[in-house]
Amino acid sequence: MKISRQNAEHYIWGEHCDGWHLVKNKDLSIIHERMPPNTAEVKHYHEKSRQFFFVLSGTITIEVNGNIMNIDKHEGIEVPPLVPHQVFNQSKDDAEFLVISQPPSKGDRILLDFHDEKENC
């Protein structure tokens, strides 16, 4: 069966961001996400999950282990387990990207509690 945003399981995370489960099983997760301008997730890490972020459109800013970089359309970055990271959309346009997690990251996210950071997505 073909999968796309039109027929994938959809969810809203934070207040304004979207996710579509393209692959959702016990071994692998592939999610198509959309972040509107000026949104951010909470800084966190995963104990077991290795993730790969691949930008489909727009630009995301990602902090990985204290290093901040922009990831543009058709670029990606791998984030190993136990490495703190945070994704932002600091642009004026929506950003759409894939988040590939192995094993799936559900229940594996450890939030880093900083008073000035919050998920506003």
Score class of each variant (00 low, 15 high):
Asp93Met: 10
His115Leu: 12
Arg5Lys: 15
Leu28Gly: 00
His21Gly: 00
His44Cys: 04
Pro36Arg: 05
Ser57His: 03
Gln102Cys: 07
Met35Arg: 03
Gln90Arg: 11
Phe88Gln: 00
Pro37Thr: 05
Gly19Tyr: 14
Lys118Trp: 10
Val87Gln: 00
Gly58Thr: 06
Phe52Asp: 01
Leu112Ala: 10
Val23Pro: 00
Pro81Leu: 03
Val83Gln: 08
Leu111His: 04
Asp113Pro: 03
Arg50Glu: 07
Glu15Pro: 00
Gly76Phe: 09
Lys48Tyr: 11
His46Met: 07
Leu28Arg: 03
Ser57Cys: 11
Ser49Pro: 01
Ser4Asn: 11
Met69Asn: 05
Ile71Arg: 03
Ser91Glu: 14
Arg109Lys: 13
Lys24Arg: 12
Gly107Tyr: 06
Gln90Ser: 08
Asn89Val: 12
Leu28Tyr: 04
Met69Ile: 12
Gly76Thr: 07
Ile3Arg: 06
Pro80Gln: 13
Pro36Ser: 07
Gly76Arg: 06
His16Phe: 12
Val64Arg: 04
Arg34Cys: 13
Glu33Phe: 13
Tyr11Gly: 00
Trp20Phe: 15
Asn65His: 06
Pro80Val: 08
Ile30Arg: 01
Pro84Phe: 13
His16Glu: 11
Arg50Ala: 11
Ile110Ser: 06
Ser105Trp: 12
Ile31Thr: 09
Gln51Lys: 12
Cys121Ile: 10
Gln86Met: 13
Glu78Lys: 07
Cys17Thr: 04
Pro84Cys: 13
Lys24Cys: 06
Leu22Tyr: 14
Tyr45Phe: 10
Asn65Val: 01
Lys106Ile: 15
Gly107Glu: 13
Asp18Leu: 08
Gly66His: 05
Asn89Lys: 01
Ser91Cys: 05
Pro104Lys: 08
Ala40Thr: 13
His16Val: 08
Cys121Met: 08
Ile31Met: 09
Ile3Ser: 02
Arg34Pro: 00
Glu117Leu: 15
Lys48Asn: 15
Trp20Leu: 09
Lys118Pro: 00
His44Asn: 03
Asn7Gly: 11
Glu96Trp: 05
Leu98Met: 07
Leu28His: 02
Ile100Leu: 13
Arg109Phe: 05
Gln102Thr: 09
Asp108Gln: 09
Trp20Ala: 08
Cys121Asn: 10
His16Thr: 13
Leu112Gly: 04
Ile31Leu: 14
Ile12Trp: 08
Thr39Asp: 05
Lys92Gly: 04
Ala40Gly: 02
Pro36Gln: 11
Asn67Cys: 09
Asp18Met: 14
Asn70Ile: 03
Arg109Asp: 09
Ile12Gly: 01
Ile12Pro: 02
Ser4Glu: 05
His74Leu: 15
